[in-house]
Design a protein around this nucleic acid. Structure first.
Lengths: 231, 231
DNA sequence: CGTGCCATTGACCATTATCAAACGACGTGG
DNA sequence: CCACGTCGTTTGATAATGGTCAATGGCACG
């Protein structure tokens, strides 16, 4: 592992306050990999050998059942993923694949489980991380059950535009069908939902979407901190 | 707090291995309450002062937005609820109300946060609990996004019948409209979904539902351990 | 310069929600 | 003990939402 990667790890809330000795114990057997876009990293149902940390790129978490498939989350650096499965040593509930060329750090799950039994600060960081993840999935479930597709889209646009820049424009760096699946709909209906939002000042040209008037869109999206906040 | 209630607490995975001294510190300021059915215990958006433990009865966790409302979970004894909010000291994402007369133990959230910083066993138990909760919400989200209403109902029936007894009959102890909301549909459509499952041997009389042939229902429900298992 | 896949559009169908009405269980008060 | 009202459930009719199928155009990549 390169020194610069170790620094990246140190920046994560999960590892920020960890004792040097413990961090070394975790990172010594770790390895950093580079994957091209559209590489399957994890297959739903398999056993978790590693905690994954996305260092660079973009990863989609998705699940399949009965011939259907849905996107659960899209992960950005720097984030750990599939923490719960690694901790419990239970089969992955989601598959993971790269959407862009990505660098991923693999930390052996057994080292992880050993370390947080000995490092109270780390144990607390894991608690905080899991609690936040829990809340974010609850928000996804509320979004799905309490909103119609155009509302989900409008709120997603507001959130994403706010993260990318604050000028009210955003650019997708993955396919629209992936966004459709994330929103719980089909590519066809995403197209229609985007067309429908034109009346609220949303203009789509290829992968770039501009929001003419953020306040106007916000009024129709009706965002709620109990569904849309990142915390 | 009565001695018998303390024993109940000790049975929970969360408190099983906790040091006596720490448990006492947590339970000294705790209080046990009895609530009639249909009592609001927690309002979405408010601040978490207590970790709740359902000791007896039945509690519904639900969320509202934009005039809509949906049930997230139905909790049975003995279970803690709204753990993540209490740990992070963040606003509740869900409301909670009793569906039956219930007894609920309230543990002050600040005592909770103090204790798991000092008791490694407890910290680990919290980690395991949160990881399991996280996985169970992911399963709910998959259920919602990957299945149609009759499939969700069929799988819910199989799970619930297995928990209640193994004879293939089950009795609801709450209203059908609550089940409808849990399944992400309306009472009208739940009625129709139940009628539809009659062809698979499901017979509804009032609040009692009998499954003539479990294997036949299972074939049409297509359950998956990655969505339906309780672990 | 094809070939293949994504995105869009239109037509159609499936699923689900809403509205309305009727029925029945339950509890209250006469 | 019965009449009545309330509310949950069911059923039917209708509307809205979303999914599927098919066709087209565009763009990237070989």
């Amino acid at each position: 592992m390169r020194e610069s990667d170790l620094e990246v790890l140190r920046e994560l809330p999960l590892f920020k306050r960890m004792a040097d000795r413990q961090l070394e114990r975790l990172t010594r057997p770790a390895s950093l990999h580079r994957y091209p876009a559209n590489t399957l990293l994890i297959a739903e149902g398999s056993r978790p050998d590693f905690l994954h940390v996305l260092v660079e790129g973009c990863v989609e978490l998705f699940a399949s059942h009965n011939g259907r498939q849905t996107t659960i989350e899209i992960i950005r650096p720097t984030t750990t993923f599939i923490l719960a499965a690694a901790i419990l040593d239970q089969p992955y509930l989601k598959s993971a694949k790269t959407l862009l060329e990505s660098r991923v750090l693999l930390l052996p799950a057994n080292a992880l489980r050993a370390v947080f039994r000995e490092d109270a600060d780390f144990a607390y960081a894991v608690i905080a991380e899991l609690a936040e993840r829990y809340r974010s999935v609850v928000k996804l479930l509320k979004d799905q059950k309490l909103r119609l597709t155009p509302e989900r889209l409008a709120n997603w646009l507001l959130k994403t535009a706010a993260v990318q820049n604050n000028t009210g424009s955003l650019t997708l760096d993955f396919e629209k069908k992936t966004l459709a699946s994330l929103l719980g709909t089909t590519p066809e209906n995403l197209s229609r939902a985007l067309a429908q939002l034109e009346t609220a000042g949303v203009k789509t040209t290829g992968r770039t979407i501009t929001i003419a008037n953020i306040e106007e869109l916000r009024a129709s999206a009706n965002p709620s901190p109990l569904i849309d906040s990142s915390i």
